[in-house]
Amino acid sequence: MNRLAPKKTDIWVIPVILLVSVAFGYIAGFRPFGIGLDFLNYQFFYDDIRSSDKFSYFRFEPGFVYVAAMFKSFTGLDYTYFAAFLMTLSLIIKLSVLKRLDHPVLAVIFYLSAWYPLLENTQVRIAFATSLMFLATDKMIEKRWTWFLLLSAIASTFHLTAAAAATGLAAASFLARYRLRYSIPLIGLGGLALSAFITTIMLYATQLNPLLLLQDTGSNSPNIFSVLNIAIFLFLIFFVASGSAKENRRRIFFLVTCGGFMVLLVFFQIPVIAQRLKELLMVFMTFIAFEYRLNSKALPQTILATLVAGGSLYSAISYGLFSN
């Protein structure tokens, strides 16, 4: 089966999606556990919006600025309400896509543990961009490329790097038709091609969004051999070894996750870009973390996916993504 086929929705599913989304959206907006990172920067931006401002005045992408300006204009509410609203909407979209998987509850728990702290809770622009990219994956798997391109383009107006996710998904969809013995080396060749043109790529990317160069300029090089990276790498190995990558849809998301390691290596000397692009591609591991027959043969990858989720949540809390 190569598509996220519509499933019969139990009557309780939609209320649960809304309840979970509102609860976690509330945390992202109203910060009951502490301000965390990035919140004050977004609050300053939102407070600075005036009805006479041109969108080009702001350093953020136009889609995000437009939605923020419209919300403030129509409601008059402060940033906490806007963040809660946008992140609730982001989660509704993501959970509505994930409910179509074979093990939706596990997928949702994995996302909320591994990615919610970093995205909806912290990086609101990327969070909403990835929600649109989640929706775009449906269209991609259904071969509805016009919708895929449209959703990807809209996502890019919330965060430019969504274009990289769209490229990775499209490339993975193409490579998934081949055996892994061919597709994985082709990813490596793609990395070499990126390395050859990295200067040109960064020149155009920073012209489109100077923030890509300005953010975290003092960051150290990412730790390739971090515990989480090793756990994800081992998960991918066991995922293939158990035969879980035989189905086309799973193979697509497997290859996208592999692409996360590729961009980490290619952009290693530009820490913020390396980390951001890696995260943007590896978020699609959500679609395969528990998407296989849960039996003894798949036990190692199940344990590793659980460790990735738990380790990511612990790391986020320790790093202060929730606290002051």
Rank of each mutant, 00 (worst) to 15 (best):
E120Y: 00
G76H: 05
S244H: 05
N223P: 01
T80Y: 05
L264T: 04
M1G: 13
F267G: 09
D47C: 15
M285S: 08
L234E: 10
A205L: 15
G25V: 02
M202F: 11
S244K: 07
K99L: 12
A5V: 13
I270N: 08
A69I: 11
P6M: 04
L132V: 08
L299F: 03
T157M: 02
A193M: 14
L149A: 14
A68S: 12
P32S: 09
T122R: 02
S244Y: 10
M140V: 03
K72I: 12
D138Y: 15
A193I: 14
A127R: 00
T286K: 07
L77C: 09
L40T: 14
V16K: 05
L313K: 03
S226W: 10
V16A: 15
S312G: 07
L118G: 10
D138W: 09
N121E: 13
R179K: 13
E61Y: 03
L169H: 07
N229K: 03
F174S: 12
L277S: 05
R251D: 03
L150F: 04
M282N: 06
F134R: 01
I224S: 13
M133I: 02
A68L: 10
M133Y: 09
T257Y: 02
R276G: 00
F128Q: 06
V124D: 01
I92G: 10
K54Y: 15
S244E: 12
G218Y: 04
E279W: 11
P62V: 06
D47T: 08
L304T: 03
F24I: 07
A205P: 04
M282K: 11
I198F: 06
A155N: 02
L112I: 08
N220H: 12
N248I: 11
F287N: 05
F253S: 03
T130A: 06
L186V: 06
D78F: 07
P104L: 01
L89I: 13
A166T: 06
I154Y: 05
Y178G: 07
L186C: 12
N229D: 14
T88Q: 04
I14K: 13
Q275Y: 07
A69T: 15
